[in-house]
Design a protein around this nucleic acid. Sequence first.
DNA 1: CTGTTAGCGCCTTCAA
DNA 2: TTGAAGGCGCTAACAG
Lengths: 348, 348
Amino acid sequence: MQRVTIKDIARLAGVSVTTVSRALNDAPEIHSETRDKVLRVCREQGYRANLLARSLSSSHSNLLGLVVPDMANPFHAALALNIELCAQEAGYQLMLCSSRRDDQRLENLFDFLYSQRVDGILLSSAADGAFALARRCLGQVPCVLLGACPSEDSPLRANTVSVDNYAGGRMAAEYLHSLGHRNVAYLGHRAGSSTHALRHGGFLSAAAELGMSVETVSSPFPSSTIESGSRLAREFLSGPLSQTAVFAVSDAVALGFIQVADELGVAIPDQLSILGFDGIEYAALPNIRLTTLSQNAPRLAQAAVRLMLELIDGGDQGMYTRTLITPTVIRRATCRALEPSEQVPSEC
Amino acid sequence: MQRVTIKDIARLAGVSVTTVSRALNDAPEIHSETRDKVLRVCREQGYRANLLARSLSSSHSNLLGLVVPDMANPFHAALALNIELCAQEAGYQLMLCSSRRDDQRLENLFDFLYSQRVDGILLSSAADGAFALARRCLGQVPCVLLGACPSEDSPLRANTVSVDNYAGGRMAAEYLHSLGHRNVAYLGHRAGSSTHALRHGGFLSAAAELGMSVETVSSPFPSSTIESGSRLAREFLSGPLSQTAVFAVSDAVALGFIQVADELGVAIPDQLSILGFDGIEYAALPNIRLTTLSQNAPRLAQAAVRLMLELIDGGDQGMYTRTLITPTVIRRATCRALEPSEQVPSEC
DNA sequence: CTGTTAGCGCCTTCAA
DNA sequence: TTGAAGGCGCTAACAG
């Protein structure tokens, strides 16, 4: 039951622990025969270095912390997978944690990762609280915010990588406009999230420029899930329908919406077009074929990890970087072009 | 940049490090005033214990390792979430890793977790190699296999928690039989997986007893994804159709199958019924409504964590436990009952 | 109730 | 090329 340590190996190989350590880290100043002998003994004994001890004494763990709000969410799962991939290439292991949309837990996790002495923390959260957390670790541990994006004018006090939500919002409006839609809804807006604020702002601004009328349906729910999408849909579809298209804040919300529309006999896209946001895998399913704006998880992941590595190597100079990734429209089956005859003028 | 340690706190509070340690771990033998003073200083200094050091000296980390084959898979994501929940209740943090269906990586991750001195390892893998790994840690670190399930007759050499695949296979056959299906296909069978072996065995045995004819379509792909499901479907649906129902080894495979069936104009369930396995959230989507056997992730998770805690507390006596969870049929829209007139006798 | 002394397993100077 | 000594930050006996 007692695990074999570097000391045991040293004794068995008839050398000092220093020599064993050198063999393990293939240091240059060691006789190759000595090294081979030591490594052979290690293999025979099934020796595994104690990474706790190693990290403690070398003061770096080769561990990156990643906190996602909800790993059952396919977008975050895909993002995590891509980040793990990039991190591994750079020789880092990931400590993946799920905050489950709980701010208290997010804070606890953050402290935990810090205490665990990860070399850097990636925080995937659009909650405003994430900024405070990121700031708290100034000069303590490199931290990059994923998905969160401070507004252009506020002073940048954190490293961020995110999809360009403002541009995404604009693209959504422009795309719907290009199909002839003039009366549209923005479904699932959530206050207190910088992501949502920007996306909504972009949508409204483009819509205004294009002369579209927008009804914003805000979400009282803490997260943008299928469940919240269907609840919002039930409310939205209960009255008479003046809109011809809906932009949902996430694919999950869009899926929930479609589900209810289906139940209520609202034909999509014939009566109503719906456009999502995220580009999750399940939105591509048969019979769903959700038209959406893809966030491009692999590129987000790569940018975030690359930035993190720079911060770690460069010693986190206290400079801040904002990286924006433009989303892509993925045309599928839930948005249709209105015939000229259908194009009623905007309400307002 | 230098982080504050227990020594700093001791100096600032005018006590010894031991006293600080005691305050931190709220040991009974400490004056409450002393403790309050120490804790106040900790707060003022923003002190965070170094968990590496703590684990190293206390020889337990309160960390559980969890390896899943693919965290983009919604079933595994849900399972991980549930396990995290249970672990947290018991005061453990999870180190979640994705083996990405790569045996070499699985082994590396295992070694990594062991080296990281997690208090226990949960391995969610149906690959036969998982048993070898589990055995390798005998008396080193408690290990429970999730989803993997040794056959009844082989000597039990590992702790396992899994859905009862054999019973699940039988239930699938029985359910299809109860709907009147006599000629059916088993889609996506993969060799080298104990899970698949049992599920397939159960299906065949019940089918034989009920006088059903089964065509097994094996999968050359390493994992059961939407992608592999659609490839298998393309092959399967290319010839004339003698079956009236298909049992897919996973919901993802079923979804891929449906996608292609849709493309090829095969009506589901009118021409062909399809039954899945897993009970992932996305199978419940509108327009999909996949009939399936649910694995019941919360119960699996709870059983696994509970077992792990017993192993940790009880010191892993070298006894092995096998826990089986019976799946549940979830009736939705992709299986239909055959009319008496349609019930052709079995081919064989 | 508090402090002193030893480690935990490893890495890293500094000498030899 | 090798070894001895000290320390990473914390806990755990053992005294006082």
